[in-house]
């Protein structure tokens, strides 16, 4: 047994009483983490350019290139593709905002948050809210740009579009965070991006309409897959709000269904992400 000759200090013992401890407010902490996400984003200009520039370029190039081959009555491809581009902007911004968690982990910042006296959901809330607001900001810029370039939508539908965009971004940010949580490198994330997230976007009706069921087998299969994709409903909602109602020649769910599915998807993904982040793991120590 080892002996110590240090003298006791009753005053010190008095000081070390855990009752003095204050546990932080989860809302304050979430607000701070959200604020940090936004500040960080705005201080990295290449991220801003990448997230808005690429979809706009897509929209302009595809709009011009597909113009002659694309046929829906009373609609140019540019008009059709506009909500799809908005969805792409939301996807890019939301996803890139959340893979910052990989950076946070590697740079060491995350470990400081993990040992703070806040519940995990508070940290996830901050991250997701930050990513969502960033996506909304850029989506809003694109909407304004669309109005400037002749895409027509009423003010009331604009409010609905922003609301749906919020829910969609919330889902994408949660999804991105869930995928990135256990990842060690951003390279790994790009593989997921290409194999999973881009197809999810492509199969939402963003780039081409949901084919009607009852045609060939491949068409029916596409129809089923696209109807199972939750992103389809968010996009369909935005499209209907922009065009003031469903387009007769396309398969489209009702606006109510769009809201419900999109909201449920957002709640589900957020809960799942929080659940995963709450699991204690040796992986956190790095």
């Amino acid at each position: 047994m080892v002996r110590s000759i240090a003298t006791p200090d009753p005053e010190m013992s008095e000081l070390h009483d855990s009752r003095r401890a204050v546990v932080a407010s989860p809302w304050d902490a979430a607000g701070m983490i959200c604020w940090r996400e936004i500040v960080r984003f705005l201080r990295q200009r290449n991220r801003v350019i990448g997230a808005v520039g690429q979809p706009i370029l897509f929209w302009l190039l595809f709009g011009a290139g597909m113009h002659s081959t694309f046929q829906i009555p009373n609609q140019s491809f540019g008009t059709y593709f506009f909500p799809g581009t908005l969805l792409l902007i939301l996807l890019f911004t939301a996803i890139f905002a959340t893979i910052s968690v990989i950076e946070d982990r590697n740079a060491g910042f995350l470990q400081g948050v993990l040992v703070a006296p806040i519940p995990r959901w508070s940290m996830i809330l901050g991250k997701v809210l930050g990513g969502t607001l960033l996506a909304l900001l850029q989506g809003g810029l694109f909407l304004a740009l669309g109005a400037f370039l002749g895409i027509r939508y009423s003010l009331s539908s604009a409010v609905g579009i922003v609301g749906l965009s919020f829910l969609i971004s919330w889902s994408f940010t949660s999804l991105g965070l869930m995928l990135a949580w256990r990842m060690e490198s951003t390279q790994g994330f790009h593989a997921i991006m290409n194999l999973f997230l881009m197809p999810m976007w492509l199969l939402s009706g963003a780039f081409f309409p949901v084919p009607l069921a009852g045609g060939s087998i491949s068409q029916t299969l596409m129809h089923v897959v696209m109807r199972l994709n939750p992103a389809t409903y968010g996009l369909a909602g935005i499209r209907q709000l922009m065009q003031g109602g469903p387009v007769a020649s396309l398969w489209q769910p009702s606006l109510t269904i769009c809201w419900i599915v999109t909201a449920l998807f957002a709640v589900l993904l957020f809960s799942l992400t929080t659940y995963i982040a709450r699991q204690p793991s040796t992986h956190d120590a790095r």
């Binding site: 932080a24 902490a29 701070m32 940090r36 500040v39 960080r40 995350l110 470990q111």
Partner: peptide
């Protein structure tokens, strides 16, 4: 709540200012 932790690799955010880093920490605690 009773522990202050300083890791082997600094857990500061390089994009934030010195003061912002501490404000962030303050909210977490």
């Amino acid at each position: 709540a009773n522990i202050g932790v300083v890791f082997q690799s600094p857990s500061i955010d390089l994009k934030l200012t010195v003061r912002e880093n501490l404000l962030c920490q303050a909210s977490l605690y």
